[in-house]
Amino acid sequence: MEGQELTEQETALYDRQIRLWGADAQRRLRKSHILVYGMTGTVAEFCKNIVLAGVHSVTLVDERVVTEESLSANFLILPDENLYHGKTLAELCCDSLKEFNPMVHVAAEKGDILTFGVEFFEKFDAVILSCCSLRKKKWINQKCRKLSKPVAFYTVECRGSCGEIFVDLQDYKYSKLKRLDETIECRIEYPSFEEAISVPWRALPRRVSKLYFAMRVIEQFEYVEGRDPGQTIIDDLPGILKLRKELCETNSLNESQIADALLERLVRDTTEYPPICAIIGGILGQEVIKAISGKGDPLKNFFLFDAMDGKGLIEDISGPSGGSGAGFD
Protein backbone atom coordinates (compact mmCIF):
# COMPACT_ATOMS: atom_id res chain seq x y z
CA MET A 1 0.00 0.00 0.00
CA GLU A 2 1.39 3.35 -1.00
CA GLY A 3 -0.09 6.53 0.35
CA GLN A 4 -3.76 7.25 0.60
CA GLU A 5 -6.59 5.34 -0.96
CA LEU A 6 -7.55 6.41 -4.44
CA THR A 7 -10.48 8.78 -4.51
CA GLU A 8 -13.75 7.98 -6.19
CA GLN A 9 -12.84 10.38 -8.96
CA GLU A 10 -9.50 8.66 -9.52
CA THR A 11 -11.04 5.20 -9.52
CA ALA A 12 -13.60 6.28 -12.11
CA LEU A 13 -11.09 8.04 -14.35
CA TYR A 14 -8.33 5.44 -14.14
CA ASP A 15 -10.64 2.40 -14.11
CA ARG A 16 -9.29 0.75 -17.26
CA GLN A 17 -5.64 1.12 -16.35
CA ILE A 18 -6.08 0.14 -12.69
CA ARG A 19 -7.40 -3.10 -14.12
CA LEU A 20 -4.09 -3.36 -15.95
CA TRP A 21 -1.50 -2.44 -13.34
CA GLY A 22 -3.43 -2.43 -10.07
CA ALA A 23 -4.31 0.18 -7.46
CA ASP A 24 -0.87 0.09 -5.78
CA ALA A 25 0.86 1.05 -9.00
CA GLN A 26 -1.68 3.81 -9.54
CA ARG A 27 -0.94 5.19 -6.06
CA ARG A 28 2.79 5.21 -6.79
CA LEU A 29 2.19 6.99 -10.06
CA ARG A 30 0.18 9.61 -8.22
CA LYS A 31 3.17 10.45 -6.03
CA SER A 32 5.73 10.71 -8.80
CA HIS A 33 7.37 13.79 -10.29
CA ILE A 34 8.68 13.86 -13.84
CA LEU A 35 11.19 16.25 -15.42
CA VAL A 36 11.18 16.64 -19.18
CA TYR A 37 13.76 18.50 -21.25
CA GLY A 38 13.30 19.28 -24.96
CA MET A 39 9.76 19.62 -26.28
CA THR A 40 9.94 17.54 -29.44
CA GLY A 41 7.02 15.75 -31.04
CA THR A 42 8.15 12.52 -29.41
CA VAL A 43 8.29 14.18 -26.02
CA ALA A 44 4.82 15.66 -26.59
CA GLU A 45 3.56 12.11 -27.13
CA PHE A 46 5.35 10.93 -24.04
CA CYS A 47 3.97 13.79 -21.93
CA LYS A 48 0.43 13.05 -23.09
CA ASN A 49 0.86 9.45 -22.04
CA ILE A 50 2.12 10.11 -18.52
CA VAL A 51 -0.27 12.98 -17.85
CA LEU A 52 -3.13 10.66 -18.80
CA ALA A 53 -1.62 7.92 -16.62
CA GLY A 54 -1.93 10.22 -13.60
CA VAL A 55 1.52 11.13 -12.27
CA HIS A 56 1.71 13.83 -9.62
CA SER A 57 3.59 16.41 -11.65
CA VAL A 58 5.33 17.02 -14.93
CA THR A 59 7.90 19.82 -15.22
CA LEU A 60 8.85 20.97 -18.70
CA VAL A 61 12.09 22.70 -19.65
CA ASP A 62 12.68 24.16 -23.10
CA GLU A 63 13.78 27.73 -23.61
CA ARG A 64 13.37 27.73 -27.37
CA VAL A 65 10.65 29.63 -29.15
CA VAL A 66 8.26 28.27 -31.76
CA THR A 67 9.61 27.53 -35.22
CA GLU A 68 7.95 25.80 -38.11
CA GLU A 69 9.87 22.68 -37.27
CA SER A 70 8.69 22.61 -33.65
CA LEU A 71 5.10 22.65 -34.90
CA SER A 72 5.45 19.84 -37.37
CA ALA A 73 5.05 16.82 -35.10
CA ASN A 74 3.95 18.44 -31.84
CA PHE A 75 0.20 18.48 -31.30
CA LEU A 76 0.59 20.40 -28.04
CA ILE A 77 1.40 23.60 -29.90
CA LEU A 78 -1.60 25.14 -31.59
CA PRO A 79 -0.92 26.91 -34.90
CA ASP A 80 -1.97 30.34 -33.62
CA GLU A 81 0.72 32.99 -33.55
CA ASN A 82 -1.23 35.09 -31.09
CA LEU A 83 -0.51 32.45 -28.47
CA TYR A 84 3.24 32.43 -29.02
CA HIS A 85 4.02 35.94 -27.92
CA GLY A 86 6.97 35.83 -25.55
CA LYS A 87 6.36 32.22 -24.66
CA THR A 88 8.87 29.40 -24.70
CA LEU A 89 8.10 25.97 -26.12
CA ALA A 90 7.87 24.64 -22.59
CA GLU A 91 5.26 27.23 -21.62
CA LEU A 92 3.16 26.62 -24.72
CA CYS A 93 3.18 22.85 -24.26
CA CYS A 94 2.41 23.30 -20.59
CA ASP A 95 -0.79 25.18 -21.38
CA SER A 96 -2.07 22.36 -23.60
CA LEU A 97 -0.95 19.52 -21.39
CA LYS A 98 -2.78 20.86 -18.35
CA GLU A 99 -6.07 20.24 -20.09
CA PHE A 100 -5.43 16.52 -20.51
CA ASN A 101 -5.83 15.68 -16.87
CA PRO A 102 -6.88 18.20 -14.22
CA MET A 103 -5.43 15.99 -11.50
CA VAL A 104 -1.85 16.36 -12.75
CA HIS A 105 0.29 19.42 -12.04
CA VAL A 106 2.06 20.57 -15.18
CA ALA A 107 4.59 23.41 -14.97
CA ALA A 108 7.24 25.03 -17.15
CA GLU A 109 10.60 25.78 -15.58
CA LYS A 110 12.70 28.66 -16.88
CA GLY A 111 16.44 28.76 -17.15
CA ASP A 112 19.43 26.82 -18.45
CA ILE A 113 19.26 23.22 -17.28
CA LEU A 114 23.06 23.10 -16.96
CA THR A 115 22.87 25.66 -14.17
CA PHE A 116 20.30 23.74 -12.15
CA GLY A 117 21.61 22.32 -8.90
CA VAL A 118 21.21 19.12 -6.97
CA GLU A 119 18.20 20.41 -5.06
CA PHE A 120 16.38 20.89 -8.37
CA PHE A 121 17.04 17.42 -9.79
CA GLU A 122 16.32 15.80 -6.47
CA LYS A 123 12.66 16.73 -6.73
CA PHE A 124 12.13 14.22 -9.50
CA ASP A 125 11.61 10.50 -9.84
CA ALA A 126 12.29 10.40 -13.55
CA VAL A 127 14.23 12.67 -15.92
CA ILE A 128 13.68 12.54 -19.67
CA LEU A 129 15.94 14.30 -22.17
CA SER A 130 15.38 14.89 -25.82
CA CYS A 131 17.04 17.03 -28.47
CA CYS A 132 20.11 17.10 -26.27
CA SER A 133 23.79 17.29 -27.14
CA LEU A 134 26.09 14.46 -26.17
CA ARG A 135 27.73 16.67 -23.56
CA LYS A 136 24.43 17.60 -21.97
CA LYS A 137 23.24 14.01 -21.89
CA LYS A 138 26.39 12.91 -20.07
CA TRP A 139 26.36 15.86 -17.70
CA ILE A 140 22.72 15.46 -16.62
CA ASN A 141 23.05 11.70 -16.41
CA GLN A 142 26.01 12.09 -14.02
CA LYS A 143 24.10 14.66 -12.02
CA CYS A 144 21.20 12.24 -11.61
CA ARG A 145 23.54 9.44 -10.59
CA LYS A 146 25.01 11.50 -7.77
CA LEU A 147 21.70 12.31 -6.12
CA SER A 148 20.90 10.83 -2.75
CA LYS A 149 17.86 9.04 -4.13
CA PRO A 150 17.52 7.00 -7.29
CA VAL A 151 16.25 8.86 -10.32
CA ALA A 152 15.21 7.07 -13.50
CA PHE A 153 17.04 8.61 -16.45
CA TYR A 154 16.05 8.45 -20.10
CA THR A 155 17.09 10.00 -23.38
CA VAL A 156 14.95 9.81 -26.48
CA GLU A 157 15.68 10.75 -30.08
CA CYS A 158 13.71 10.38 -33.30
CA ARG A 159 15.16 11.06 -36.75
CA GLY A 160 12.95 10.34 -39.72
CA SER A 161 11.89 6.72 -39.68
CA CYS A 162 14.18 5.83 -36.77
CA GLY A 163 13.91 6.24 -33.04
CA GLU A 164 16.07 5.45 -30.02
CA ILE A 165 15.51 5.35 -26.26
CA PHE A 166 18.26 5.02 -23.67
CA VAL A 167 17.43 3.93 -20.10
CA ASP A 168 19.51 4.26 -16.93
CA LEU A 169 17.78 3.05 -13.79
CA GLN A 170 21.13 2.70 -11.95
CA ASP A 171 20.72 -0.11 -9.41
CA TYR A 172 17.07 -1.00 -9.87
CA LYS A 173 15.20 -3.37 -7.60
CA TYR A 174 11.65 -4.50 -8.00
CA SER A 175 9.51 -7.46 -7.20
CA LYS A 176 7.29 -9.41 -9.47
CA LEU A 177 4.59 -11.93 -9.05
CA LYS A 178 5.53 -15.41 -10.06
CA ARG A 179 2.34 -17.43 -10.02
CA LEU A 180 -0.22 -17.00 -7.28
CA ASP A 181 1.37 -15.84 -4.04
CA GLU A 182 5.00 -16.19 -4.83
CA THR A 183 6.88 -12.95 -5.47
CA ILE A 184 10.47 -12.81 -6.52
CA GLU A 185 12.86 -9.92 -5.98
CA CYS A 186 14.65 -8.76 -9.08
CA ARG A 187 17.62 -6.50 -9.44
CA ILE A 188 19.05 -4.94 -12.58
CA GLU A 189 22.22 -2.86 -12.74
CA TYR A 190 22.43 -0.25 -15.45
CA PRO A 191 25.50 1.48 -16.83
CA SER A 192 25.47 5.24 -17.20
CA PHE A 193 25.07 6.74 -20.65
CA GLU A 194 28.80 7.41 -20.84
CA GLU A 195 29.67 3.87 -19.74
CA ALA A 196 27.22 2.36 -22.20
CA ILE A 197 28.43 4.22 -25.26
CA SER A 198 32.05 3.53 -24.27
CA VAL A 199 31.57 -0.22 -24.41
CA PRO A 200 33.87 -1.29 -27.26
CA TRP A 201 31.82 -2.34 -30.24
CA ARG A 202 33.82 -5.51 -30.63
CA ALA A 203 32.72 -6.52 -27.14
CA LEU A 204 29.08 -6.46 -28.21
CA PRO A 205 27.22 -9.48 -29.54
CA ARG A 206 27.41 -9.79 -33.30
CA ARG A 207 23.71 -9.32 -33.77
CA VAL A 208 23.41 -5.92 -32.17
CA SER A 209 21.18 -3.64 -34.22
CA LYS A 210 23.18 -1.67 -36.77
CA LEU A 211 21.00 1.28 -35.94
CA TYR A 212 22.75 1.47 -32.57
CA PHE A 213 26.14 2.00 -34.27
CA ALA A 214 24.71 4.41 -36.82
CA MET A 215 23.17 6.55 -34.07
CA ARG A 216 26.57 6.71 -32.30
CA VAL A 217 28.29 7.86 -35.49
CA ILE A 218 25.74 10.63 -36.00
CA GLU A 219 25.84 11.62 -32.34
CA GLN A 220 29.64 11.83 -32.42
CA PHE A 221 29.56 13.81 -35.67
CA GLU A 222 27.19 16.38 -34.25
CA TYR A 223 29.32 16.62 -31.13
CA VAL A 224 32.67 17.17 -32.85
CA GLU A 225 31.14 19.58 -35.36
CA GLY A 226 29.44 21.49 -32.58
CA ARG A 227 26.00 20.99 -34.13
CA ASP A 228 22.71 20.97 -32.29
CA PRO A 229 21.03 17.57 -32.34
CA GLY A 230 19.33 16.92 -35.65
CA GLN A 231 21.26 19.66 -37.46
CA THR A 232 22.73 17.64 -40.29
CA ILE A 233 22.19 17.91 -44.03
CA ILE A 234 22.97 15.56 -46.87
CA ASP A 235 26.20 17.44 -47.57
CA ASP A 236 27.50 16.14 -44.28
CA LEU A 237 27.45 12.60 -45.56
CA PRO A 238 31.12 12.47 -46.68
CA GLY A 239 32.21 13.73 -43.27
CA ILE A 240 30.00 11.19 -41.58
CA LEU A 241 31.34 8.34 -43.69
CA LYS A 242 34.84 9.44 -42.73
CA LEU A 243 33.94 9.42 -39.08
CA ARG A 244 32.37 5.99 -39.48
CA LYS A 245 35.70 4.73 -40.83
CA GLU A 246 37.58 6.13 -37.84
CA LEU A 247 35.12 4.79 -35.30
CA CYS A 248 35.03 1.38 -36.94
CA GLU A 249 38.79 1.22 -36.93
CA THR A 250 39.12 2.05 -33.24
CA ASN A 251 36.39 -0.45 -32.48
CA SER A 252 37.62 -3.18 -34.82
CA LEU A 253 34.29 -3.29 -36.58
CA ASN A 254 33.91 -3.86 -40.28
CA GLU A 255 32.74 -0.61 -41.87
CA SER A 256 30.15 -2.47 -43.91
CA GLN A 257 28.31 -3.22 -40.68
CA ILE A 258 26.97 0.33 -40.78
CA ALA A 259 25.34 0.65 -44.17
CA ASP A 260 25.78 3.84 -46.19
CA ALA A 261 22.06 3.87 -46.91
CA LEU A 262 21.19 3.86 -43.22
CA LEU A 263 23.58 6.72 -42.45
CA GLU A 264 22.26 8.63 -45.42
CA ARG A 265 18.72 8.32 -44.16
CA LEU A 266 19.73 9.50 -40.71
CA VAL A 267 21.62 12.48 -42.10
CA ARG A 268 18.93 13.47 -44.56
CA ASP A 269 15.70 12.87 -42.64
CA THR A 270 16.35 14.67 -39.42
CA THR A 271 12.80 15.85 -38.85
CA GLU A 272 10.49 13.86 -36.68
CA TYR A 273 7.97 11.68 -38.39
CA PRO A 274 4.66 11.64 -36.46
CA PRO A 275 3.95 7.88 -36.54
CA ILE A 276 7.44 7.23 -35.14
CA CYS A 277 6.89 9.87 -32.44
CA ALA A 278 3.72 8.04 -31.42
CA ILE A 279 5.50 4.70 -31.27
CA ILE A 280 8.62 5.87 -29.44
CA GLY A 281 6.61 8.18 -27.15
CA GLY A 282 4.39 5.22 -26.36
CA ILE A 283 7.24 2.86 -25.52
CA LEU A 284 8.95 5.55 -23.45
CA GLY A 285 5.73 6.30 -21.60
CA GLN A 286 5.33 2.65 -20.77
CA GLU A 287 8.93 2.36 -19.54
CA VAL A 288 8.65 5.39 -17.29
CA ILE A 289 5.37 4.09 -15.89
CA LYS A 290 7.03 0.74 -15.20
CA ALA A 291 9.98 2.32 -13.42
CA ILE A 292 7.99 4.63 -11.17
CA SER A 293 5.24 2.16 -10.39
CA GLY A 294 7.68 -0.70 -9.80
CA LYS A 295 5.44 -2.86 -11.93
CA GLY A 296 6.80 -4.90 -14.80
CA ASP A 297 10.25 -5.65 -16.23
CA PRO A 298 11.94 -2.46 -17.41
CA LEU A 299 13.95 -2.61 -20.59
CA LYS A 300 17.73 -2.56 -20.50
CA ASN A 301 19.05 -0.33 -21.84
CA PHE A 302 18.47 0.73 -25.45
CA PHE A 303 15.29 0.53 -27.49
CA LEU A 304 15.68 0.98 -31.24
CA PHE A 305 12.97 1.24 -33.87
CA ASP A 306 13.24 1.59 -37.63
CA ALA A 307 10.05 1.84 -39.68
CA MET A 308 11.92 0.44 -42.68
CA ASP A 309 11.94 -3.05 -41.23
CA GLY A 310 9.29 -2.43 -38.57
CA LYS A 311 11.33 -3.98 -35.78
CA GLY A 312 11.25 -2.56 -32.27
CA LEU A 313 14.37 -4.01 -30.62
CA ILE A 314 15.79 -4.02 -27.13
CA GLU A 315 19.59 -4.01 -26.94
CA ASP A 316 21.58 -4.51 -23.77
CA ILE A 317 24.67 -2.35 -24.20
CA SER A 318 26.47 -2.76 -20.92
CA GLY A 319 29.64 -4.70 -21.57
CA PRO A 320 31.09 -7.34 -19.30
CA SER A 321 31.34 -5.17 -16.18
CA GLY A 322 28.06 -3.37 -16.37
CA GLY A 323 25.85 -6.05 -14.89
CA SER A 324 23.95 -8.47 -17.03
CA GLY A 325 20.23 -8.62 -17.25
CA ALA A 326 17.95 -9.54 -14.43
CA GLY A 327 19.56 -10.99 -11.35
CA PHE A 328 17.67 -12.58 -8.53
CA ASP A 329 18.29 -11.99 -4.88
Binding site: N49, A53, P274, P275, A278, G282, I283, G285, A307
Partner: peptide, 16 residues
Protein backbone atom coordinates in the same frame (compact mmCIF):
# COMPACT_ATOMS: atom_id res chain seq x y z
CA UNK B 1 -8.05 -3.09 -19.46
CA UNK B 2 -6.67 -0.35 -21.61
CA UNK B 3 -3.99 2.27 -21.56
CA UNK B 4 -2.97 5.19 -23.78
CA UNK B 5 0.55 4.02 -24.54
CA UNK B 6 -0.41 0.83 -26.37
CA UNK B 7 -3.03 2.65 -28.38
CA UNK B 8 -0.52 5.34 -29.36
CA UNK B 9 1.99 2.73 -30.51
CA UNK B 10 -0.63 0.86 -32.49
CA UNK B 11 -1.92 4.04 -34.09
CA UNK B 12 1.63 4.86 -35.22
CA UNK B 13 1.95 1.40 -36.75
CA UNK B 14 -1.41 1.77 -38.51
CA UNK B 15 -0.31 4.99 -40.16
CA UNK B 16 2.95 3.39 -41.31
Amino acid sequence: HAVATTNAIIAGLIVI
